[in-house]
Design a protein around this nucleic acid. Structure first.
Length: 563
RNA sequence: GCGCCGUUAGCUCAAUUGGAUAGAGCGUUGGUCUACGGAACCAAAGGCUAGGGAUUCGAGUUCCUUACGGCGCACCA
């Protein structure tokens, strides 16, 4: 139920619509003040009256009813307190406890709409390092969140499978590579060859690499067989990581996919008179918009990353007819996307406004930027392995009798990796450190999972007792705080989607777990004084477990029953 | 040089998008356990929200400006 609208319905301010009143209603900073509040400053000018007087008068006129139990003026604020029992009944109804909260916070707002999300973007022959974590888990979380809100979602892994680096790779392999070693060493063996090539490359070798790249393009059998081999080794490697992180895609159309789809777009640019020659290259001039030119074709006639991105945008619009197309890419590429979207707009495409660059911050190490060449790099699978290892050690120490410890450790360790990347605002830069990554105390997924295990443990104790639909139990402050926290979940999901910010859900999980833990400490559940109270608290515990599990699952994090 | 982003407690970050006394976690100090799970809970200390100006009844939040930091600025992806 929309309480703001309900409250506003009973407030008459001359010259202000009910909707505007509802819009102005806020939640007080301290629960002791009330459940909702209307600041009356805005009406002062309109009514030529002091805001505290307005609050006073509105309070006197406010009709008492079953839902709003009191309306009191506090300075210029009009504070409302709601009937706890009515709220609790309302919450349980919306939560649909009978189905264990399945679908709580979901909606149909996205019905009939399609969202494309471009994320992770694997580079063939390059292992994932910690810098690839953000785009991967951010994109995957947004994927689930939009799905949960009823959207049709298309997850796209825009493979980095085109470029002169593959010519270099073939050269390096032919020079130093041993089939068995690469087969065994996988992507890291390939990467080592690439690094070595860059370290030792001579003019002659560079020329050979360019020739090898040309061979791939011209369809040479041997060159393509090698490329496909490297690609399959890469996909096998990333597939394992995606499985562990619970990341999926609907399309793997990468850069190569678009090389035969660029010409129509280039023609369209020409026809619209947007393409001009500049220093030998074909560009779209963006000086008017304070940006450097958007290069479509190099002076040697070759296409660029930008050209393929442009073709990809048109392909996606034609294929999926999206309502939104998101690019989950680091802010490093702010300018590129600004240019890309502007060019599409200049081409007269109305859907240019539906293109969104979901920019996030960069990852560095404590001693500076990562550098593959200098070997200063933190591989993603090492981070995952170490977190799972740590989880296993803690488990061994705290709960040695636990069954399937390795499954639980996997959920806990992987969860910590994902949560670490999703807990803060995405725009913040991250300085990666193992100290932080391996800390499972405080505001972490482990804390939330632990809270879930507590819930499950209590519920196990009451499972044979009648829970029923008891409405007679008094709603105490602790219970009410928990209901309020749980009731905030649907808004958290909506805000996460609206701002492309899964951290809203991560924060909600931690906040709600905190509220539950306080409730848990103060209130006996299985041994509550009366049967009514026990029923109420058990239901709340069940709701907490279901909602927290749902919250974490939207982020890609599993919840063990015991840990 | 120009553009974009950031700057909040010792550290890492929140702050319902302009509302009431700026909140958490980590760390520090001191407490709570003969139990429905201590990976927990409570308390204390810690702030001129980087500096300055402006708008507003009201600014961490909007605008201008300075400083510091990150990123980007034509044929890489």
């Amino acid at each position: 139920m929309d309480y703001k609208a309900y409250i506003a319905e009973h407030i008459a301010v001359e010259g202000v619509t009910k909707a505007e009143v509802a819009e102005a209603i806020a939640v007080p900073p301290d629960a002791a003040m009330g459940d909702y509040a209307l600041p009356c400053f805005k009406f002062a000018k309109l009514l030529h009256k002091a805001p505290n007087l307005i609050a006073q008068e509105l309070a006197e006129k406010y009709p008492a009813d079953g839902i709003v139990s009191s309306a009191e003026a506090a300075g210029a604020y009009l504070n409302f307190r709601l009937n706890r029992k009515a709220l609790a009944a309302d919450f349980f109804r919306e939560f649909a406890l009978e189905e264990e909260g399945a679908g709580y916070g979901s909606s149909e707002e996205g019905a009939g709409k399609t969202v494309c999300i471009d994320y992770s973007s694997v580079n063939i022959a390059k292992p994932f390092h910690i810098g690839h974590l953000s785009t991967t888990v951010l994109g995957a979380a947004l994927y689930r969140i939009f799905k949960y809100l009823g959207y049709n979602v298309v997850g796209i892994n825009h493979l980095g499978d085109y470029g002169t680096q593959f010519g270099k790779l073939i050269s390096a392999y032919k020079k130093w590579g041993v089939k068995e070693e690469v087969e065994k060493g996988g992507i890291h063996a390939i990467n080592d060859l690439y690094v070595r090539f860059n370290a030792e490359a001579t003019e002659e070798m560079e020329a050979e690499a360019r020739e090898n790249f040309r061979l791939i393009e011209s369809g040479d059998e041997e060159a393509n067989a090698l490329f496909e081999w490297f690609k399959s080794l890469t996909m096998r490697y990333v597939g394992k990581i995606y499985d562990r992180l619970h990341v999926t895609f609907d399309s793997y159309a990468g850069e190569r996919f678009y090389i035969d789809k660029m010409q129509p777009v280039i023609d369209a640019l020409k026809n619209k008179g947007l393409l001009v020659e500049s220093q030998g290259a074909q560009v779209v001039d963006l000086e008017k918009y304070g940006m450097p030119p958007f290069i479509v074709l190099r002076s040697d006639g070759a296409s660029l990353y930008a050209t393929r991105d442009l073709a990809a945008a048109f392909y996606r619009k034609q294929t999926y007819d999206f309502d939104k197309c998101l690019y989950v890419v680091a802010y490093q590429q702010n300018l590129h996307f600004k240019q890309l979207f502007k060019v599409i707009e200049l081409m007269g495409e109305a859907w240019a406004k539906d293109m969104v660059h979901v920019a996030y911050g960069m990852v560095s190490l404590e001693d500076g930027a990562m550098s593959t060449r200098k070997g200063k790099v933190v591989w993603l699978e090492d981070v995952i392995d170490r977190c799972v290892e740590k989880a296993k050690n803690v488990l061994e120490e705290k709960n040695p009798a636990l069954e399937n410890k390795s499954d639980v450790a996997e959920k806990v360790g992987v969860g910590a990796v994902i949560f670490g990347a999703l807990y803060n605002n995405k725009i913040k830069d991250i300085v990666f450190s193992y100290d932080k990554a391996l800390n499972f105390d405080g505001e972490t997924s482990v804390y939330v999972q632990y809270t879930c295990a507590r819930c499950a443990s209590v519920l196990e104790k009451v499972k044979d007792l009648p829970m029923g639909e008891r409405a007679n139990a008094p709603i105490g402050e602790r219970e009410f705080e928990l209901i309020r926290a749980l009731g905030g979940f649907p808004d958290a999901v909506k805000a996460a989607a609206k701002n492309y910010e899964p951290s809203v859900i991560a924060r909600w999980c931690v906040d709600t777990a905190q509220v539950f833990n306080k409730f848990y400490l103060d209130c006996k559940i299985a041994q509550a004084e009366t049967e009514d109270l026990r029923a109420l608290r058990a239901r709340l515990t069940r709701a907490t477990l279901a909602a927290l599990t749902r919250g974490l699952s939207l982020l890609g994090i599993g919840v063990p029953e015991k840990m």
